[in-house]
Amino acid sequence: MTIEGPATYWDLLWAGGTRYRPLDENELAALKQHAGPGAGRTALDVGSGDGALARHVAQLGYATTGIDCSTAAISLATENSTAVGVTFREADIEGPEPLPVTEGSVHLVTARLVYAFIADKPAFLGRMRRLLVPDGLLWVATPMADRLPDRAWVGISADDEDLLTVGWSAVDITDIDYMRCYALRP
């Protein structure tokens, strides 16, 4: 689903009290298995929302920056954050503005519940590849449209999945009910 004016769209939902699928132990264990300990390496959480995943990544030892295009989400993430090693910034991953990290410097990029809503998926994936260090990891966790027939618009199609997984040196997939997690290496 493509959203016109994503910052306004997400601001209204976050400010209105909408919350999304909470992190679960299976998802966190899969991420930890693929990402490993941070040991001070850098991480970027794209579409960080309330900041739960960014805080978890920081607890793994990564110097983490969470970004979201929604001012309301960043306010919520900042209010809820007592974690060491995590900062939150308002930034639109699809916008032309520079991100708060430099290309080729990020060891782990996470994008949870984000990929289905990206308008230009090829551009997004290109940007993710440019952000990563050569042995970095892109972690994408997303619902699968065919597993949510009543809400297929929040998930990705088989074509979206093909686009997501092509061109990586390693692709590992973990299924968790209607979610699929992708560990992608350049």
Rank of each mutant, 00 (worst) to 15 (best):
E4P: 06
G126M: 09
A83C: 05
T78F: 08
V171C: 06
D92S: 03
G155Q: 03
P100D: 07
A116R: 05
A183C: 07
Y20M: 09
R55L: 11
K32G: 05
T174F: 10
K32F: 05
L138T: 07
F88W: 05
E27R: 09
T8N: 10
G5T: 10
A83K: 06
A91H: 03
L148D: 06
D175M: 02
W153M: 10
L44W: 00
V46R: 00
H34Y: 12
I74S: 10
G167Y: 08
E79R: 09
W153R: 15
D162G: 15
Y182G: 04
Y182V: 03
I176T: 12
V171K: 00
L12A: 15
P22K: 07
E4D: 15
L164W: 00
D45E: 07
D160A: 11
T110G: 02
G40H: 04
T102R: 11
S169Y: 09
A141C: 13
L76I: 14
C69G: 10
E4S: 14
A116K: 03
N26W: 13
P186A: 10
A35L: 06
L13A: 07
T78R: 14
E79Q: 12
H34T: 15
E161F: 05
P134M: 09
A52E: 08
S105F: 01
R127L: 01
R127P: 01
W153S: 15
V46H: 00
G17E: 13
R151E: 12
M179E: 03
H107Y: 04
L76T: 12
A152H: 12
M179A: 08
Y178V: 05
Y182C: 02
A58P: 03
G104Q: 06
V109K: 00
A52R: 08
I93V: 14
T18E: 13
G167V: 07
V140E: 02
L76F: 08
E79C: 12
D159C: 06
S157G: 05
P98Q: 10
P37C: 10
L163M: 12
G51D: 02
W14L: 09
G136Q: 10
T64D: 04
R130H: 11
L184F: 06
G40K: 03
D68I: 04
R130S: 13
T64K: 03
L99P: 06
T8S: 14
D92V: 07
V171E: 08
G136P: 06
L23Q: 08
L44E: 00
F117H: 11
R129H: 04
L44P: 00
A72V: 04
D177G: 11
L163A: 14
P143W: 14
L148T: 11
P186G: 08
R55V: 06
E79I: 14
L138P: 00
R19T: 13
T8D: 15
V46I: 14
P6E: 11
D175I: 04
G136V: 01
C69Y: 01
T64Y: 02
I118D: 04
V133I: 06
K32W: 09
W168V: 12
R185C: 05
A54M: 06
L137Q: 07
P186T: 15
L108W: 02
Y115C: 05
L44R: 00
A39E: 15
G126E: 15
D11Y: 03
Q33N: 10
D45V: 01
N26K: 12
D146F: 13
T64E: 04
G47E: 02
V171D: 01
G38T: 09
M1T: 13
E27V: 14
G49V: 00
C181Y: 13
V114M: 01
G155H: 03
